[in-house]
């Protein structure tokens, strides 16, 4: 588990700050706060999750109240306010997916990893999450790996391959 991340400095790396600056530039000069969603993702990518110090650092960087950034970080469910495994797998179980095996795929992963939703494997490698519709229901079952990679048509064979690939 990335718990050691709590010990890292809340400060963001120069690379992350550069990425955030690029986001800030999309918005009017007096609307820096608009970049907070992207900035929190950039911070989460760097730290593995979002410790409160990091949220505060992002807020300060964007000139907003830390509480306002926390509201955002806790409202959108792809931000991780607690440490997660190296691979966070989010399985869509919403109805359209479920009709084509979404729930069964989740059960299959649970069984293979020996964890339930919102749990992390003992080796800290996998965290399993239940997801809502990802706008890809035609490809069911679908899963997200670490928020940014979408995997389609996840039948047993494909799940086996995915888990094997996650080192």
């Amino acid at each position: 588990m990335n718990t050691q991340n709590t010990m890292l400095s809340p400060e963001l790396s120069p690379e992350s700050l550069k990425k955030i600056d690029r986001e800030v530039a999309k918005y009017p000069a007096d609307q820096k706060q608009s970049a907070v969603m992207a900035a929190l993702v950039i911070a989460q990518d760097e730290k593995g999750w979002l410790p409160k110090e990091t949220i505060a650092a992002v807020a300060t960087y964007l000139g907003m109240a830390p509480m306002a950034a926390y509201e955002v970080a806790s409202f959108y469910n792809m931000y991780d306010l607690h440490p997660v495994g190296k691979y966070k797998i989010t399985v869509c179980t919403n109805l359209p997916c479920a009709l084509s095996g979404g729930v069964h795929a989740a059960d299959y992963v649970k069984h293979k990893l020996g964890v339930d939703f919102n749990e992390t494997t003992a080796d800290g490698k996998f965290t399993l999450k239940e997801g809502e519709c990802m706008g890809a229901c035609g490809d069911a079952p679908v899963m997200l790996v670490n928020n940014k990679r979408m995997c389609s048509f996840m039948l047993p064979e494909q799940i086996d391959a995915l888990l094997a690939e996650c080192k």
């Binding site: 109240a65 509480m67 306002a68 926390y70 509201e71 806790s74 409202f75």
Partner: peptide
């Protein structure tokens, strides 16, 4: 946020 001038409280989660 509005009267005291700094948002010390928020409504988190949803």
């Amino acid at each position: 946020a509005e009267i005291a001038g700094f948002q010390e409280l928020g409504q988190s989660y949803r």
